[in-house]
């Protein structure tokens, strides 16, 4: 606060609008908390986040504003720095964990129907007969860090289980992985099953794994593949209409 403003406030009124000064000070504090929430995400202050978020609520911060202008803005900046090669995966994940800690405190206080947050759900699984999930887990981590709501079903999942979960969760994207050429046909099976149940058009189906090529992804009628976890984020963003 400038000296001038401090002087005016000492007299009990803000300079311009004639509003009582404690009110003006409160507006200031709320903006300050938005900035501090953003900063905490950028600096991966996981440990300090819950207390900061509670403190912000106590000082009258609108929780939705805190999430969108503070936490989400922070994760976007971290994501950009990751994309530019200045930050690395662990930092991105830590920032996401920090954001999650903040959302956990703020979200229950968002009034019902107050312009609910839009999240994009992704169901991930490794196909039946395959238990190799390191790559799928990295994709899950990266998608989460980039703001997607990921439901990870784990390994060895049948097409039926995957499709049921996707329907229950209203997932926009279903992603499946296979490491072995012997389990790859399960991916095609999933997409065929979706078609026969009439739900193929309800979501986007993406595939991944070491033996998967773009040609294979095209051949089985999927919505695409990416060579690594960063590429998977770009693909997902493209499929939900964000990014190029």
């Amino acid at each position: 606060m400038s000296n001038f403003l401090a002087e005016v406030c000492a007299k009990g009124f803000s300079a311009r609008r004639g509003v009582p000064c404690h009110r003006a000070a409160e507006v200031n504090t709320t903006e300050d908390y938005v900035a501090r929430l953003k900063k905490a995400v950028i600096e991966y202050d996981m440990e300090g986040m819950p207390a900061l978020a509670k403190d912000a609520l106590d000082h009258g911060l609108d929780p939705l504003q805190g999430i969108e202008k503070g936490l989400a803005a922070g994760i976007r900046e971290v994501g950009q720095r990751f994309g530019a090669g200045d930050l690395f995966l662990p930092e991105l994940v830590m920032a996401a964990e920090t954001m999650r800690a903040g959302v956990a405190v703020l979200e229950p206080h968002v009034p019902k129907g107050a312009g609910a947050r839009v999240t994009h759900k992704v169901v991930l699984a490794t196909v039946q007969d395959d238990i190799h999930e390191i790559g799928k887990n990295l994709v899950a981590t990266m998608l989460t860090a980039n703001g997607f709501d990921v439901i990870d079903l784990g390994v060895n999942q049948s097409s039926d289980v995957i499709l049921k979960k996707a329907a229950d969760e209203h997932a926009e994207i279903v992603g499946v992985s296979a490491l072995m050429t012997t389990s790859m046909p399960r991916m095609k099976e999933l997409i065929n099953a979706a078609a026969s149940k009439g739900v193929r058009a309800k979501g986007k189906f993406v595939i991944g794994g070491a033996p998967v090529t773009e040609q294979y992804a095209k051949d089985i009628g999927s919505d695409g593949t990416a060579g690594d976890a960063s590429g998977a984020v770009r693909l997902a963003q493209k499929l939900i209409g964000k990014g190029q």
Partner: peptide, 25 residues
């Protein structure tokens, strides 16, 4: 997402400047 990971990443792992470790696509 561990702080230990972030704290030691840059000294424990060599992060290449010219070697391209992106996937084929």
């Amino acid at each position: 997402g561990q702080r230990h990971t972030v704290d030691h990443l840059r000294t424990e792992h060599y992060l290449p400047k010219l070697v391209d470790r992106r996937s084929f696509d």
